[in-house]
Design a protein around this nucleic acid. Structure first.
Lengths: 240, 240
DNA sequence: CAGTGGTCTAGACCACAAG
DNA sequence: TTGTGGTCTAGACCACTGG
């Protein structure tokens, strides 16, 4: 991954920004950066596009490139910058991957909702995977995922106690690189409060999503309930 | 707008896709498209990136470019095609625009936080606009926005009792087409509960964001607190 | 006017997919 | 092996910002 020119640029710039090296929030201009990194300006632009998409910087024609002050204030707890769009890669704290506790693993008939989300025929079977994710002693997410049996016929509790998507990538060469997510909030239930160590009046953030393999085949439909302090999603939108 | 090469490509491809001209869902390869459109392959790639971001097509190295079948099945979910990124255009219920009640309108000196977000000098003045948005009798958002006085010197309570961005577009030809948002959730305060008609244990969704004009000048910094049932954010992510 | 990002081109070479 | 997208370069010219 990091042997790509623009990836190297992204990583270095991200590191510099996170280390507050640009105290006035202004980055060197693209031509200077190209020289400094000894790459073409196009590669700088490609890297910038990624950082812009992440909400880390923004550019202003005629003025320059600036660190996004909101990024500095609201360091995202997750962003889509890893190898795939799964929880293990996108939720990291100080570079640490979350711990996983498997609450339940079963095979069930897909409900209508699950059927629709995963484009299954009536009666097809899915794994239901309930997991709790934590950083050390702090649990932050209850995950209830559905995966078609026919796509991963050999799933075991052992596999889901680690990163499912990393397993798919390493042993099956399946990359999960797309996701469609709906982000919302909800009152916490008694179970939420117990598992996520929440007070009764504290809410959960919810994320509901479909995850896709490269070709566009849906591989997982997932409900996630997060400790509200751990749900912080950054998004940059440009209308065309 | 449409005099840009890549915009022309985007528009034509989008139109062809919407007209189901690619019956097998496969587009011509990039080199062919470059020839057909009489542009460079780089311009085709730039256009493709926009269509990919919109969820309209996806590419697979070695295979080609394909129309996203999910886009065909559920177009509105992936189309981000309002006129601007403001609340009035993006929050609509059955095509209805929300009502606005102005809670407060003042001119104040920008705090350091606001200064940074809007790229102002110390001591510059901003409007502070507090508004409550409702659908009929159901309030759903408390909005606390800051707009530099110098950018909109003639702001009045009358203007902010309607859509500020629509006013800017119509009377000043300023389009607000970019936004950076941080989405999270929080325990509701007494004020939230009163204004949004929430029970004490019910939470708010929060959105904090900077809104930008076309060329990147920030025009508003806004804190939004939403009735949790009305915060639903959809996002489509593609890695690489 | 100088500084800076935006657009666009032409072309080379690499990496992956599928026959 | 051929087709296809991915990466990368070098450089030209345009458009906007701000002194």
């Amino acid at each position: 991954m990091a042997d790509l020119v623009y990836q190297r640029v992204i990583n270095k710039l991200q590191k510099s920004i996170d280390a507050n090296e640009y105290t006035d929030l202004k980055l060197p201009n693209e031509r200077i950066l190209a020289e400094e990194f000894n790459v073409s300006r196009s590669s700088i632009k490609k890297a910038m596009n990624v950082l812009i998409q992440r909400g880390v910087v923004f550019q202003k024609q005629g003025s320059g490139t600036f660190v996004n002050p909101l990024y500095l204030k609201n360091r995202p707890l997750f962003n889509f910058s890893g190898d795939n769009v799964g929880v293990t890669d996108t939720f990291q704290k100080d570079g640490e991957r979350p711990d996983i506790r498997v609450l339940d693993l079963n095979v069930v008939k897909a409900t209508e909702e699950v059927q629709q989300a995963l484009f299954l025929e009536p009666g097809e079977f899915v794994y239901e995977i309930k997991r709790l994710r934590s950083f050390g002693t702090q649990p932050f997410m209850i995950e209830d995922g559905f995966v078609p049996v026919k796509l991963v016929p050999d799933l075991t509790e052992d596999i889901v106690s680690g990163s499912l998507y990393n397993y798919l990538q390493e042993s099956r060469n399946i990359a999960v690189t797309r996701s469609f997510l709906t982000i919302s909030a909800d009152v916490s239930t008694a179970q939420d409060q117990e598992l996520l160590q929440l007070k009764p009046n504290e809410p959960v953030g919810t994320m509901e999503g479909i995850f896709f393999m490269d070709r566009g085949t849906p591989i997982e439909f997932s409900h996630m309930r997060l400790h509200y302090k751990f749900m912080r999603y950054n998004t940059f939108t440009v209308l065309n």
